[in-house]
Simulated assay, not measured.
Amino acid sequence: MEWDVSRSDGLDFRVLGPVEVHDHRSGTRITPSGAKQRALLAALVVRAGEVLSAERLIDELWGDRPPAGAANALQAHVARLRRLLAPAGEGDPGQSLITTHPLGYLLRLGSAPTDAQRFTRLSAQGRAAVVADPAHAADLLDRALALWRGPALEGSGRGQICAREAERLEQSRLTALETCYEAKLRGARHAEVTGELERLTAAHPTRERFYDLLMLALYRCGRRSEALGVYERARQRLMSEIGIGPGPALRDRMESILLREPGLDSAGPLPAAAGVDAAVDAAVLDLSGEIARLRARIDAIGREQDELVRRFTLLSERAREVSSGR
């Protein structure tokens, strides 16, 4: 069953581009104007449903150079963000989406999905349909990619929470692009995609999959010599960028084009080399969710350890006071 990704009746948190919140009931768009406000909102959305400690948020906003009174400054930023989000709150207008806990702050999204969640769900649906229905798969993946308005978490600073999530989302976007063009090639749309793949190989010179897809598209357009030229360009760029030549999948593609293997002319299933890459790509996307869950667990353990250290320090100080009092 496909997930309904139509417009929400309530809130819409967006991180695939500048961080912003849309309230579809009032038609308003909420965008923090200050850099610290954007970073705070971004971190809370990325870790929605999880208590973020004050120490973690201070590090996210100021890094290794926090201001004097950083805890008070953070409280002020949280208060301003609460006021900014107050018109979008569910039920009681005074009810805040951000709640304070003994160990930090928590943002609850409720039933409102983020655009990143919609992107992940549509991408997964597209991957699942690539073989059986490439046209439908391409449509799903195009819809997923259309959710992007710019670099993920743009303008949200370079704290660890936002930087890691931005990198994860960007890798997922590139994998979705690769899978989308595979689906279009399976659907005999090779003439349509060559220009787009040319631009992608220029923009991402170390992504071998884009070269592979471009070579196949050019070959199916009757441009065999140009397809072989793409391999040489890929070899030179890879040697220049990372110091190694093309991997076995791209070498296999070049050899199959040299030999004019019959399977290359088919507009249906891609030859084996591409199929293996697609399976790896799908595994990478599936793994990203597990990595995110493991990271959240590691973060939680870290917070628990910090709290234990704090309590132990307090007990030690009290013990010294009692001892000195004797």
Rank of each mutant, 00 (worst) to 15 (best):
I298P: 06
G94A: 13
N72A: 11
L287H: 06
L294V: 08
D9W: 04
E170F: 02
R56P: 04
Q37R: 11
G268H: 03
G195F: 02
A71L: 12
L228C: 02
T100I: 10
G195M: 09
C180G: 07
D306N: 09
G104Q: 05
D286P: 03
E196T: 13
G302R: 07
T313R: 12
P246T: 14
R56F: 10
I161V: 05
R80N: 15
T201L: 02
R127D: 06
A88I: 00
R108D: 12
L40G: 09
Q160Y: 12
D252T: 15
R56S: 14
A191E: 14
R118D: 04
R80D: 13
L40Q: 05
L270S: 08
T179F: 02
L145R: 07
V46E: 14
S316I: 04
L147S: 04
L250F: 10
R233I: 13
R38A: 05
A203T: 15
R25A: 09
T313F: 03
R260A: 06
D306A: 09
G27S: 06
P248S: 06
V46F: 04
S240V: 02
L41Q: 01
Y219R: 03
I301G: 07
G126Q: 00
A176V: 07
G89I: 12
L264C: 00
L216N: 04
K36Y: 01
R237P: 07
S323T: 08
Q117Y: 10
P269N: 10
C162A: 12
E208K: 05
V21K: 01
L238D: 01
G150V: 03
G247A: 05
R29V: 10
A267M: 04
A86C: 07
G94P: 02
Q37K: 13
Q160A: 11
Q117H: 09
A279G: 12
R186A: 00
G159S: 00
E208W: 03
I58V: 14
C221L: 05
